[in-house]
Amino acid sequence: MSTQVPEQTEEESSADTESQSQSAAQQARMEKKRDRAAQRDQQREAEEAEREFSEDGTYLLKVFRYDPEIAGKQEPRFDEFHVPYHTGMTVLDALMYARDEYDSSLTFRHSCRQAVCGSDALFVNGRQRLGCKTQLSDLEEPVRIEPLPHQEVVKDLVVDMEHFYDQMHAVEPYFQTNDLPEGEQLQSRENREKIKMSTRCIWCGACMSSCNIAAGDNKYLGPAAINKAYRFTMDEREGEDMKEHRMKIMEQEHGVWRCQTQFSCTEVCPKDIPLTEHIQELKREAVKNNLKFW
């Protein structure tokens, strides 16, 4: 069944404190996140205590439905499900309950149920979130569940991710280098720390979906792909020539310069990757590079 989420958040935050050389901005952000988590925990306990005695113990879900293959379902609509609540229930748990108990045609992607596979990014109460990482008790009722905005809907909560994957592949998301060493290719601790957050991406597409610019410019690489490029550009083991090659991709018309620092991607990323910070760093890197050639 679902993971015990209060424990999970604690583990996550203690893992985060281990890293010493995070930037001040990131540290402050994590600090804020921890405060919020603590606050939420308290609030949740209070709410749960109340819930046990009052109400009927269910959560009301309003779920976006659409099925192009069935005549009566081609017009998008919202279906309501009353799902019995249990402590620690996530949005994904609730959806699975609705599917298993009420309507087996309800369609959505999921796999790991622990924020690792990135298949269940959804638009929940007006925000991109991972279904499996979102506690029902953190949400206001009714819980509105929609497919990710700015992507085409295939069926119910399933969106077409092809374009997102194309953008990810466009930045050559794999390690490459021209100077192969004899033995192991070791990375310095400092360098590892620098790219650590950027390696966390699970390809969920939440960031891309939240970005107004990506919505208006289909060619814009988008936060996830740029972050992926950052992960390799900043990896010192790839060497200078490869870095230059990567910067050329980043500097293209639809690369880093499209970012208008709205911070929506950073706010929704379920893996807490400081996306805007990484994009800004690549912009400064690009400026520095070009000044060199004057």
């Binding site: 001040a24 901005a25 402050a28 952000r29 804020k32 805007t276 910070e277 800004q280 760093e281 912009k283």
Partner: peptide, 10 residues
Amino acid sequence: VDLGVGLHAQ
């Protein structure tokens, strides 16, 4: 923001 100053307080 462009200089990367105070991003957490944007």
